[in-house]
Structures are given as structure tokens and as C-alpha cells.
């Protein structure tokens, strides 16, 4: 189990995440909802342990082990990975080299082919292509999803996997998430899209760095639609709302 215990993250003296408590279990899907600026991507970076995103307070525990001070690579070696909202581009790097990490990720050609097909990319057309600026945003996202499939992670944070991908492909993302979970991965989905969030087992709603609400996705999505979509004080939860919700 991956747990965030009383996690705070501050940048330039400003608290971006406040007293976050979350637990993630293998084989389950979690949706993190929140308006822009709520701290969702920061949460993803803190979980992954990116440079400059060490919690100011609190702990991150993986199966009881304190990994708060672990660097990115150590966390990745323990099965945690992250798909960026806008994945990086690589000059000259072929897709096959990227997916196999230059041979470090020992996967068969058959697995690569299947992963690409799952994300809707024809292996014959894409394997020799470069992971550079010539890929469209949607193609790059699909490549990243294929990479996640091949990594077989224990925990994966997908930061807005649907952004930049056409609406017709939402089913593909569902399918990938389902398959990851079926194979035992824990999927943490950061999303704005209701239909994706509803597929989760459990949801958290972030507002200005606090967990405003958590629970069944249907309940959280309904609240989000009723309150956050029309919110006239985005990312400024009033005490009243906070207390009411916590009650």
C-alpha cells in the first residue's frame, strides 16, 4: 500500500499541498479531481519524488517503508511511475528504444506490439519513429501509455491522460486503466473528465491543496459538478464549506 501521511508541500513559502492523507492499494483505481491550480499535478510530482518536490512535512510510506527521502529512480525501482500531462520529447530517440529504455526494460517484441496496439498505434508505422516534436500531442500521450503498460508498475499516476486525446479515444484510456488494474497495478488518475473519474474505485477532491472531500466517485463527481464547475471562489474553499464537508 502507498500512503501519504500528513503531507505538506511548500514552494516559495506558499503551501501548495496541505495536510494530505491518502492511501492507494494495488489493483484499485483512484481518481483525483480538482479545478486548475488545486494542486493535482504537484501531488503527482510529490508521489513520484521529482527534484524539488520533497514534502515539507509528513511522510510517504510504501508497504510500511518510509520513502519520503527516496529519489525518483529509487521509487521507480520499487514500482512507482508517473505519466506527465505533457510528456517530454526526445531528439533522435526511436520509439522502440524509448519503450525498452535502451534495452534496460526487458520486454519482448510481442509485448511491445501488443502495448502499441492497445493504445491505438500501429507498430509497423510507429516503432521506427522518433519520440520527438514530430509526434502530435495525442500520439505522444499514446506512446507514454504504451510505455506505462510495458513497465508493469505497482503504482502509476496518470496526470490527465485524456488531455490532448480526442474524445473518441476515451474508451482506449478506460481499457488501458482496466487492464493495468486487472494485472494488479494501482492507477491514480488525475482528470477533469467525469466519465473517466466514474470508473475509479475511490475518489479524492482537491481544492487549494487540501482534500476537500473523498469517497465514492459518483458522489464526488456529483459534488464536483454541482459545486466546483460553477464555483465562484475557485481554489478558495471557505471554512464553512470545509467544515460542512468534513462533517
Amino acid at each position: 500500500m502507498l500512503a501519504l501521511v500528513d503531507v505538506w508541500y511548500e514552494s516559495d513559502g506558499k503551501a501548495i499541498l496541505k495536510n494530505i492523507n491518502m492511501t492507494f492499494e494495488p489493483g484499485k483505481v483512484y481518481a483525483i479531481l480538482g479545478t486548475n491550480g488545486a494542486g493535482k499535478s504537484t501531488l503527482a510530482y510529490v508521489i513520484m519524488g521529482l527534484e524539488g518536490y520533497r514534502p515539507t512535512r509528513g511522510r510517504i510510506l510504501l508497504d510500511g517503508e518510509d520513502i519520503t527521502d527516496f529519489p525518483v529512480t529509487e521509487r521507480a525501482k520499487r514500482g512507482i511511475t508517473l505519466m506527465w500531462q505533457e510528456p517530454a520529447r526526445f531528439t533522435g530517440l526511436k520509439l522502440k528504444d524509448y519503450l525498452t529504455l535502451g534495452g534496460k526494460n526487458k520486454v519482448s517484441d510481442e509485448e511491445i506490439k501488443r502495448a502499441l496496439e492497445m493504445v491505438g498505434l500501429n507498430p509497423h508505422l510507429y516503432l521506427e519513429r522518433l519520440v520527438d516534436e514530430k509526434l502530435s500531442g495525442g500520439e505522444r500521450k499514446r506512446v507514454e501509455l504504451a510505455s506505462v503498460i510495458l513497465l508493469k508498475p505497482k503504482y502509476v499516476v496518470l496526470d490527465e491522460p485524456d488531455s490532448g486525446i480526442d474524445i473518441m479515444s476515451v474508451d482506449m484510456i478506460d481499457h488501458v486503466v482496466e487492464e493495468l488494474a486487472e494485472k494488479g497495478s494501482c492507477v491514480v488518475l488525475i482528470t477533469h473528465r467525469e466519465e473517466i473519474a466514474l470508473k475509479a474505485d475511490h475518489s479524492y477532491l482537491l481544492c487549494r491543496g487540501i482534500v476537500l472531500k473523498e469517497g465514492h466517485p459518483g458522489e464526488i463527481v456529483s459534488f464536483y459538478k454541482a459545486s466546483c464547475d460553477k464555483c465562484d471562489h475557485p481554489n478558495e474553499p471557505t471554512e464553512r464549506v470545509g467544515e460542512e464537508l468534513r462533517a
Partner: peptide, 10 residues
């Protein structure tokens, strides 16, 4: 780029 690859275990 570095962190993307390091988040995959390199």
C-alpha cells in the same frame, strides 16, 4: 527528459 526516464527506473 531526465526525470521522465528516471521515473521509469533508469
Amino acid at each position: 527528459q531526465l526525470q521522465t526516464l528516471m521515473a521509469k527506473g533508469l
